[in-house]
Amino acid sequence: MNTPIDEAPSHLRYAEYVLGVLDADARAEVEREMATSDAAAIAVALWQRRLLPLADEIVPTEPPPYVWERIRDGLGLRAPTRMPPPVARPGLWESLRFWHWLGLGASAVAAACLVLLLVPARRGPVAPPPAYMASAITQDNGQVGWTATMDLAQGRMVVVPARPQAIAAGRAPELWLLPPGGKPIAVGMIASDAPTTLALDRALLARLGPDAALAVSLEPPGGSPTGQPTGPVIAKGAIGASPESGGKPVALLRVNPTVRGQA
């Protein structure tokens, strides 16, 4: 029954797949093959490279703005941060950069340094008081996993691993804010072996406080697909608070390496 032309050489099926002429069943079959066979995946990639340039001909059309909002909301990503322009505040954000520079294996040192760095800020009678918060995110074994420092004025957080963290293959650490009595809020993916800087939007900033905590869970590499933690929580830490000064938070710092299983 098969004429020669019906018997497409098997490699042509990858071309047919990329061109888009296969029906749903045949497509699914090729996709299964790609998942299990490197040769199939490479053959498809080669055909994509050959044929996809034809898409250059298509006239670009701007999608309506709500499409981006839906994508962002569907993925549980933060609303765009409207960060204030950088203020000439000598040394404060730089001190966070210093954490970056300091890098691994240094969270205790970094915490101590931060105390020192903050002393002038506490005393400074002229400069507007900066607001920092810090948290030692501690693993079940009591070891500090990451140290987080939040610069409230700049809406930024630096998360530094105390040491390179062993993370299960195919998983990635995601940082969550645990507001008191509320659901976890995704802060962002963090690196297990390098400092990560994250932007804090207004909604997150509003919830940072001594009653809130931070937690790290293991999620698929792109982040939790549901917007809530789906994997095991591997580290947790309280957020340090400072005494009030003139009704304004001055420097919030309490790194507590023994925080375990809070909130």
Partner: peptide, 25 residues
């Protein structure tokens, strides 16, 4: 791939019109 949301938004800004064209067509 590293979870950078700003890069994601920038990538969307630069390429979504072309991809939307593909879908529309």
């Amino acid at each position: 791939a590293k979870g950078d949301e700003r890069a994601f938004e920038e990538l969307y800004r630069r390429t979504s019109a072309r991809l939307f064209g593909v879908c529309l067509r």
